[in-house]
Each structure stands twice: as C-alpha cells, then as structure tokens.
Design a protein around this nucleic acid. Structure first.
Lengths: 242, 242
DNA sequence: ACCCTGACTTGACCTAGATCAAAGCCGATT
DNA sequence: AATCGGCTTTGATCTAGGTCAAGTCAGGGT
C-alpha cells in the first residue's frame, strides 16, 4: 500500500467509506471531512499511540493491522483489541488512551486533529451516532473476549481467533476463505492469553486434523470450516438444522 | 431496602442522583424523568433480563447488585460485568442484550419503558452524553478485566476483585474499609475465571497473610491495604513515593 | 432444640498449558 | 552461496489451578 497513493484518494473512493466512522455521512458531511483529513503511515512494529500520551489525532485504520495492548509491571502483556481496516482510534471525550496502539503490519491511517474533530462531532450527529455504535460493538466484542479468556481451552481460543479472521475478512461474494495471518505467534498468544508455544502446538494440531492448510507461515486456507466452528466451543449452529 | 419506600422517592432525593444516567440532568429534565420512571424490584437469584429477550425497559440500579453473564453451550459460565448502584441496564440503539442480567442480591431498579426513553434521548443531550460516558467507562473496565482474565494469577485476581470492591464502596469520607461481600464464592469464581474452590483457598491465604479479616462469611475488613495493592499485580503506587 | 440445606472449606490427586531448552526454517544481507 | 537473526516448531519437564471427594458450618423452618 502506497502512502502517496492514498494521499490523493477522495473519501468517495475510500475502501472503508461505508464501514468507518464516516459510514452514515452524506455527501456534504463527507466533503467537510475530506478537507480536514490527513493520511499518516506507520511501519510494522511502530507504536502509534502510547498509553497515557496526549492524543493529538483520532484516526480510522484504512489499511493494515494494529493492536491494542496493556502491560503489567513485570512485563506480562495482554492484547485487548485488534484494529482492522475501518476501525477507529480515539474516543469521544477522552484525551488519552489506557493502552498502547501498535502497528502489527504497515498501517495507513486517515487522521483528524482531535480538537477540530470533536467540534465537528457536536455539529454532525451522523458521526457521533456512528461512533457510539462502533463503541457499543467494541464493548460486545470485549465481552465475548472475556468469555474466551476466562473459560475457553487453548484449542477453542485458537479456533475462535481463526473464525474471527474468517468473519472479518470474508467478503460476502467470495467463498474460499484464503487468509493472511496478520500476527506473529507471539502476538496471537498475547491476544488469546496463551504462550507462543501453545499457539504453535495448536496450529500444528489443526493442520493434522485437516482443518487448516498452510502455504507458508503467514498464508493459509480453512479446509474444514464446519470442524473449525465446532472447535470454537460457541453455539455452533447459526440455525442450520440437517 | 423497602420498595414501597422507594416508590415515593423523588429523583432529587435519590441516592444515585449524581452518578446515574441522570447525573447531568438539570431540574427540568429530572422532572420529566420523574414522571415516567417506575421502580421495579427483583429477589436475589431472579433473572432481570434474559440474553436475547426483547428489552421492554431500560433501568438504573438503585440498590442491590446484579451480574452480567454469558454461558457456553456446555454450561461453562463467565461473568462479564457487575452492576452496582447507579449502573445502567440497556444500550442506545439495542433492543436486546447478549448476556443474562441476574439479581445477585435483592435489587431495586429505576426503570423506563424503552420506547419513551429512546425518544427522550434524542431530545435530551445531557442523558445521551452521560450514557455514552458510562458506556466508555464500561469498555475501559472490560479491557482491564481482559488483562485480569488473560494474565493474572488466582491470587492477583482475587486481590484485584477485593480492591475493586474497596474502590467502589469506599465513600471519600470514611476510612476503615468494612466490606460486604455481595457474591457467593461461586459467583466470584465466575467473575474471575476460576473455580469456587480456588477462590476459597485464596481467601484462606489472604486471611493467613493478615490481609483481610472475616467477621462472618459475608462481612470482612481489609486489615493490610498496602499488601492488598501489592498483591493485585498492577502498577501498585498511585504516585506515592516514600 | 434439631434437622436440613446450601454455602463454604479442606485435602488428595490430576492435567492443560507454562516453562525451559534445542533445533529447524526462511528471508534478508553481504 | 554463506551467514545471520527472527520466527517457528518440537520435545521434556514442571506447576498452578482444576477436579473429585469429604467434611464443616450457619441459619431457617418445624
């Protein structure tokens, strides 16, 4: 993904136009955003926001993947969120974040200065509404993750993680889930409350079970989606009765 | 807590007047709420809202304690939130909840019918703002809990739970934390991602370590608050340097 | 007073996943 | 093409916390 390229993209052609914080905006509102937005990019591994730092910008992720994580004094780390394209960084009424935001891959953000953006919020209910909606979705996701962290086995955790990738990257048209693994084993472990060794072992098991197939370390396909769902430990059926 | 009593309480004398969803309302706005509110009570153990059920009312907890919990098909359960007085049940733009809400003790709610309340929301920014603020706080709490569930030891989990009780029930004036344990060992275990036996063992350990002292099963005092903080595993010092 | 009953404690044992340690693998660098 | 340095895999061992199984305790009802 080329920054310079993105720099010239109009909102109307933006890949996340209909999912991001601007999703509900009409043409006039988009025109305002278009004027005050600025793309920013971060290399894989760079920290986008430090916990507690003054948030100069709020942003939408346009491309790439970022992680939200918290660290205990002794170094133990827990990821508390994963940002994929269209996800938002920043919160109404907060100047700081209580976690680090890190680029897991190269990341392109569509950013707004916080001050102007918050002023805009008061005048543009479509943005405020969408922001609240997105925050509510995050809260739901956080609670699902609490169940995963508190009660699921290592196998169930990894299955749930893979299924989440399928859900989030599966475009309604296509049907063969060919996936890119956006995180290292260590990062996945941090997300799932496991160690990297356990994650690796579970991947191996899924391979042996014929549930996934790797082409290389970062690319794989789900070869048995039913078995994957079964392995998540969640209410498996979405209403399908045979 | 007597229902009949509460039925006659004016908002202006309500114990949660300045912390609940109505916290920012002025006298005129409160007058409107006062007219459409209704108290409802639930006995300990009763379910207040079933996951997925149509939410007829939204409510603030006035007295008592309620739990939010999710259950996996095979019965494993994880609490995903604890509602204390002033906490809110219901969400802007949602007709259902994705978890069960259960009365852990006898509970008194201040309820509004969902329809009228949501209409009110659009006209009363003070309520909408406060609701968003409270949701954001919940999201923060959920993320802290993810760290607890994913990375903390049993001892750290229980210490964090007790410290949370201290924080939430410690009125700024008083200074001897004499606490009521609002949950059974099993419920605490469900909240902490542990088993009830482990919770019991850790309580015993804290007793032996002289950190807490029980008068009976539900009442105790924190006798060594510094040691309690130390045991939580969090950044212990709130800036205090000796 | 005396059961019940449900909540709690304690002990013995077991296991999933952590920890420690050693290779493999692969892309980047020279 | 050889070396290097991050990842990743795999194996051996350890342990925190789960599981199973007795008790113990306290309060409420008859």
């Amino acid at each position: 993904m080329n920054v310079q390229l993105f720099d010239r993209v109009k909102c109307s052609e933006c890949p996340i136009r209909h999912r991001a914080v601007c999703a509900r905006c009409d043409e006039d509102e988009i025109a305002i955003l278009d004027k005050i937005k600025a793309y920013r990019t971060f290399k894989a591994g760079e920290t986008i926001v430090w916990r507690g730092d003054d948030l100069t910008h709020v942003s939408s992720v346009v491309a790439g993947i970022a992680t939200l994580s918290k660290t205990l004094d002794d170094g133990r780390m827990q990821m508390v969120g994963l940002l994929l394209p269209s996800d938002f960084i920043g919160r109404p009424g907060r100047k700081t974040l209580d976690f680090d935001v890190t680029a897991a891959s190269d990341v392109t953000l569509c950013s707004f200065e916080r001050g102007p953006f918050e002023r805009l919020l008061t005048e543009t209910p479509h943005i405020a509404q969408r922001l609240v909606e997105m925050a509510m979705d995050e809260l739901d996701a956080a609670r699902d993750w609490m169940v995963l962290l508190g009660r699921k086995t290592a196998r169930e955790k990894l299955a749930t993680f893979i299924e989440m990738l399928v859900q989030r990257s599966h475009l309604p048209g296509s049907d063969i889930p060919k996936l890119i693994l956006p995180l290292t084993r260590e990062e996945i472990a941090s997300y799932l409350g496991l160690t990297l060794e356990t994650v690796s072992r579970q991947f191996t098991q899924f391979r042996k079970d014929g549930i996934v197939e790797f082409t290389d370390r970062r690319h794989f396909t789900v070869t048995d989606h039913a078995a994957l769902l079964e392995a998540t430990g969640d209410d498996a059926d979405g209403g399908v009765i045979v």
